[in-house]
């Protein structure tokens, strides 16, 4: 293997990290979109988990409390699922989030046309460019999704505590809550990666000459 072109993982992480730091504020805005969407998802799921557990006890007073808090419970229901409306809102919020990320990443690619072209002139392969953008998105995704998932989980916990009273804390389904928060976290990272894919491919496919021609 004499004709070797490489970019070690450590170096890609380093470059991606530097790029984020150099555009910290913009990254923060992108990450914040993700935080909002993921925390909303996490909040809804955890709230449902808690309400579901309370309903499952079959205690009529708890059922009354749930209905007072706005849950639609029909007599005989044993489990609560997200209502179609709720699911629709969650889907929409995630969709808006992805569009926001794509938009931000496209801008970031356009801004770096020359940088990408230069890297290609220095011998970078297409997949190095994709990798750098994906790494960046993964870092933003990790930060945004973990913060969002935990934030949503904690808010749902506090909201339940406030609405149903501290006595119900023993009823909280910790395992289900953990699963919901983790799901929200994974979804967040997925969204971040989904949002960067198209911009990264555009960046990687660009011919160096075109990249150099861009006026800046």
């Amino acid at each position: 293997m004499r004709r070797l072109i490489v970019l070690p993982w450590k170096k890609s992480v380093e470059i991606a990290y530097k790029s984020i730091r150099a555009r910290f504020f913009r990254s923060l805005v992108t990450t914040l979109t993700l935080v909002l969407a993921v925390s909303f998802l996490s909040f809804s799921q955890v709230s449902i988990d808690i309400a579901d557990k309370m309903l499952a006890t079959g205690d009529p007073s708890l059922c009354q409390m749930l209905m007072r808090c706005g849950y639609d419970i029909l007599p005989g229901d044993t489990s609560l699922a997200a209502s179609p409306k709720q699911r629709w809102i969650i889907t929409l919020s995630l969709l808006v989030c992805v569009v926001g990320i794509i938009n931000a990443q496209l801008m970031s690619v356009t801004e770096r046309f020359r940088e990408i072209g230069t890297m290609k002139c220095l011998g970078a392969l297409d997949r190095f460019i994709v990798r750098l953008f994906v790494m960046e998105a993964a870092m933003q995704g990790f930060a945004g999704a973990s913060f969002g998932a935990v934030l949503g989980g904690i808010s749902a916990f506090l909201a339940a505590l406030f609405r149903f009273g501290p006595d119900t804390i023993s009823l909280f389904p910790w395992q289900a809550i953990f699963v919901s928060v983790s799901t929200a976290f994974v979804t967040g990272i997925g969204l971040s990666l989904l949002g960067v894919l198209y911009p990264a491919i555009i960046a990687a496919r660009m011919q160096p000459v075109e990249a150099m021609r861009v006026e800046q």
Binding site: R3, L4, I5, I15, K18, S19, R21, A22, R114, E115, G117, T118, M119, K120, C121, L122, G123, A124, L125, D126, M212, Q216
Partner: peptide
Amino acid sequence: AYELAWLRCRKIGYIFQTFNLIPVM
């Protein structure tokens, strides 16, 4: 594409009018 990248990397050194250094490095 791979061989071309190798050529650009090892055989040719580019200098541009606009310097084109990577600004974050």
